[in-house]
């Protein structure tokens, strides 16, 4: 990753996310097909909901014919972490027009959020609409393409996980976590290590009784609180 914020760099920086969406997208399409949804419904879900984990939950609930209201509430709950992501990114686009702000927000995901928040460590704490929107759109197209492809040809390609593609997303988070760790000059490394260690503990304990769909949200809220408290107490 470098300091450039033009559209061409946006294309280059989006490649890992696009790769990551191949595995999960295919998996989502295949699961949806198996649950009885047609490729067009998969297309609608990926285009308009565009949130991996929530889409898996929606398909599960649809196949058990859960009431619409409870599916919408489950989506609200699982996706409420997006509120935190958007609040973190929005200040970078304060000077841009409302339309551009809405576009960036509309296509924000866990992955493009992490990408953008790494970029700022290389770009002197700046983001541009051209760079972010390019990375967002390419990631979005990759997600739609591969989830629909999974629903159309899923049964012929067998298990996409045999090629280790399901690890692309984890690999991306490992890479972004490490890159942030070495490039974030605003947070002392010892504080970062403490927060990361506490997050590990939270995840382990949380897995015992928090449904995995809500785990990330709960862990993020508690982990950030821990970070603030420790920062004020010791740094």
């Amino acid at each position: 990753m470098d300091e450039h914020l033009d559209m061409q760099t946006g294309i280059k920086d989006a490649i890992p996310t696009m790769l990551g969406y191949i595995g999960i997208g295919l998996a989502f399409g295949i699961v949806s097909k198996a649950a009885g949804l047609d490729p067009f419904t998969v297309f609608l879900l990926s285009t308009f909901v565009y949130a991996g984990s929530a889409q898996f939950i929606i398909v599960g609930l649809l196949s058990s014919l859960s009431p619409t209201l409870s599916i919408v509430l489950a989506t609200l709950l699982v996706n409420s972490r997006l509120l935190l992501l958007s609040m973190t990114v929005a200040p970078y686009f304060k000077q841009d027009s409302m339309v551009k702000n809405i576009l960036i927000g509309t296509l924000l995901t866990d992955e493009t959020f992490s990408l953008g928040m790494n970029k700022v460590n290389y770009s002197n704490d700046q983001l541009t609409f051209g760079w972010y929107n390019t990375a967002n759109i390419l990631s979005y197209l990759s997600w739609i393409t591969f989830s629909v492809l999974g629903a159309v040809v899923g049964e012929y390609i067998g298990d996409p996980n045999a090629f280790g593609l399901d690890f692309a997303m984890v690999g991306m988070f490992i890479g972004l976590l490490y890159l942030r760790f070495i490039s974030d000059n605003k947070t002392p490394r010892s504080l970062q290590l403490l927060v990361i260690s506490f997050t590990f503990l939270l995840v382990y304990v949380g897995l015992i009784f928090i449904p995995s769909n809500l785990l990330i949200l709960v862990v993020t809220l508690l982990g950030c609180t821990f970070g603030v408290v420790i920062k004020h107490a010791f740094f």
Binding site: L85, T88, N118, M169, R180, G223, V228
Partner: peptide
Amino acid sequence: SFVPLVIMAAF
């Protein structure tokens, strides 16, 4: 400011 670090580690 802690969200990126925590969320990436959590995933």
